[in-house]
């Protein structure tokens, strides 16, 4: 009996202190959680003001950055639309050769993903969008250092598997029943363009799938799952012999323009201006045209 109680007492004591410690720890965690939540709210309140002030400094600094160019070293982070993967990788290499000491970090994703990331404070210096709508989102949020410059354009084409199983020859053929057509969802730029072409041609396409990105559309065609897909000329060209592109004249009614701009929070504005100059200049245009892009 006495042995039992003497064994139980220290255990009991430790339990009490442990409980006390736990309670203190729980309090600490709650406090931490509250702090973070409050800090989160605070920062989102301060967000527009901070962005506004950095825009002001950006605007003040940009005239100088265009003419200057003495010391172009450092790491430049470029956020670019996924469709620019090949061309921008080439141009970044060219830039690094032209400017020893500079390094370009590239991040490719859907334009709206990149806009979300930049709005949430991702450290981008330059943003190249696949459409004006996404660029305007940053512009209206005062997250650009200067107005965007258009540097390329892209139009839709019909991608079919090499053997063209559904015998597609024109845009109207996509409206035939039984043809498995894959398009982008209207929420994404390539889908908006597809909807516009449908409207202009009066062809009602009943897609078997509305994908979130043009690469998913291309994947469904190159794997032979779909009979046809609406993708950009550059995507079809980039896929090589996996798909055959069937151009159609009505594509000209829905031209996608690609704008590029320096992000307000950039700490390398001169380097950013130099990269944008390369993309919009003759060297950049040569690379872009070779990949199938049109003039802006």
């Amino acid at each position: 009996m006495s042995r039992l109680s003497s064994r139980a007492r220290p255990g009991h004591l430790t339990r009490v202190t442990l409980e006390r410690r736990l309670r203190r720890l729980a309090g600490l965690i709650c406090g931490l959680l509250l702090c973070t939540v409050l800090a989160g709210c605070g920062s989102s309140d301060a967000g527009p003001a901070g962005a506004g002030s950095s825009k002001a400094t950006g605007a003040a600094g940009s005239p100088g950055s265009a003419s200057a160019g003495a010391d172009l070293s450092g790491t430049l982070t470029v956020f670019a639309a996924a469709s620019l993967t090949t061309t921008f990788t080439d141009l970044a290499k060219e830039f690094e050769t032209d400017h020893p000491g500079s390094k370009i970090r590239l991040s490719f994703a859907g334009s709206s993903d990149l806009v979300t990331q930049i709005s949430e404070g991702a450290p981008a210096d330059v943003f190249a969008s696949a459409d004006n709508a996404n660029m305007s989102k940053l512009e209206t949020a005062s997250l650009l250092a200067a107005g965007p410059t258009n540097f390329a354009s892209n139009v839709l084409t019909i991608a079919v598997p090499p053997d063209n199983p559904a015998d597609i020859g024109s845009f109207k053929d996509l409206g035939r029943s039984g043809v498995k057509v894959v398009v982008c969802a209207p929420q994404v730029p390539c889908g908006a363009a597809a909807a516009k072409v449908e409207q202009v041609t009066g062809t009602e396409v009943k897609p078997v799938s509305e994908e979130s990105s043009v690469t998913d559309v291309l994947g469904k065609v190159s794997s032979g799952e779909a009979d046809a897909g609406l993708v950009y000329v550059t995507d079809a060209k980039g896929a090589g012999n996996k798909v055959t592109a069937i151009d159609f004249p009505e594509a000209a009614t829905a031209v996608n323009t690609y704008p590029i701009a320096t992000v307000a929070g950039s700490t390398h504005k001169e380097l950013a201006a130099a990269f944008i100059a390369l993309v919009t200049g003759p060297a950049g245009q040569r690379v872009l045209l070779a990949a199938g892009f049109g003039k802006p």
């Binding site: 859907g110 709206s112 929420q187 078997v208 799938s209 979130s212 994947g219």
Partner: peptide, 26 residues
């Protein structure tokens, strides 16, 4: 997304709907 595609009422499940809505309607 890779295998079934994304079409409302047929293959667009809730996670795919979230992924798509994020584009225009966060």
């Amino acid at each position: 997304l890779t295998f079934a595609g994304s079409l409302e009422g047929v293959t667009r499940t809730l996670p795919l709907e979230i992924y798509l809505q994020r584009e225009t309607d966060p």
